[in-house]
């Protein structure tokens, strides 16, 4: 190819390229990028600050990477303040998410194939529970857990006092209270998510099985349950995220004692008006966010699916 033809070729390619991205397109991408910057800004500033020493974040721009002030100190400090409550939160969020998903699944199955006039109405009453402002149950909830002493009940339940067993701690009773409470208030949304999934399942198979005389129980175990794996993941992710992230109910049930969840403990690192050490506070915020961020990064689609089902 002659040099002349080569130049012409390149120019043609350039013209083509310019036509493809017209000005509006470029503006669109600039807009998208600026917005992405704004949405990521608090994360970026947070990570940078959590990697700086105190003198480092006091003297450098919050967005600047830590150069000579790099330290992991804030992370170890925050972790030592939060590790116990991190375990507490795991200890109730995982079982409560599983339990509410299981109960939601069986309730949804029972409410999907209508064989009773008021079944839809009953489902409506389940769904209304999703929109409950927790404030309206807090005082009775405190009264309830005051009256029902789970610790004493479990101590007297079997032939031996469970609290004297090795590895048992007294505050596990409070963790159990958290599991029961979060399970109960998680059932409505779990039922809603399962039910919309079950409604979309092919009814043909279910109908055929029913005509063959299958009971609701055998339909559930033989047909519905094996198909439910994807929705179980969606519901588990949704429930785990909201239980882990929640503050109010956990604060009321567990308080600031040894069973305190991480969303309560992290507040000890700083609030407005006090003089916080921002590097430790940001590290603590990230530690609190890690489980849900990991879920979001690895199961983003499932997370979005649960979110959409809510509306």
């Amino acid at each position: 190819m002659s040099p002349e033809a080569d130049t012409r070729h390149v120019l043609e390619r350039f013209q083509e390229w310019r036509q493809r991205i017209d000005k509006r397109r470029a503006g669109l991408y600039i807009g998208l990028a600026v917005l992405a910057f704004v949405y990521l800004l608090p994360f970026e500033a947070g990570i940078m600050t959590a990697l700086k020493s105190q003198s480092g974040y006091l003297t450098s721009s919050p967005l600047a990477p830590p150069l000579d002030s790099f330290t992991l100190g804030p992370w170890t400090e925050a972790w030592s303040a939060l590790s116990g409550s991190f375990m507490n939160s795991l200890g109730f969020a995982v079982p409560a998410a599983i339990l509410s998903a299981v109960l939601g699944s069986i309730a949804a199955h029972g409410l999907t194939n209508i064989d009773w006039k008021y079944q839809n109405l009953l489902f409506l009453l389940f769904v209304a529970g999703i929109f409950l402002p927790y404030q309206s149950v807090l005082v009775p909830l405190t009264r309830f857990w005051n009256a029902v002493d789970l610790h004493a009940i479990l101590a007297n339940l079997g032939p031996i006092n469970v609290w004297t067993l090795p590895y048992m701690r007294d505050h596990y009773a409070t963790i159990l209270e958290l599991i029961f409470t979060h399970t109960a208030y998680g059932i409505p949304i779990a039922t809603l998510l399962f039910r919309s999934f079950y409604q979309e399942l092919s009814t043909e198979m279910v109908e055929a099985a029913r005509i063959d005389g299958a009971t609701p129980t055998s339909v559930y175990t033989n047909i519905i349950l094996p198909l439910s794996k994807p929705i179980f993941i969606v519901v588990f992710i949704y429930q785990f995220t909201s239980i882990w992230n929640g503050l109010l109910i956990s604060l009321i049930v567990a308080g600031v004692g040894p069973a305190a969840p991480i969303t309560v403990e992290v507040n000890k690192l700083a609030i407005a008006g006090e003089i916080p050490t921002y590097n430790t506070m940001m590290a603590g915020a990230f530690i609190t966010a890690i489980p849900t961020l990991l879920i979001y990064i690895f199961f983003g689609d499932r997370f979005a699916q649960g979110v959409r089902g809510y509306g």
Partner: peptide, 15 residues
């Protein structure tokens, strides 16, 4: 949206 209200509050205290 995947964050807790609590974590958002901490981020914005710094913002």
């Amino acid at each position: 949206f995947s964050l807790s209200f609590v974590v958002t509050a901490k981020f914005w205290l710094w913002m």
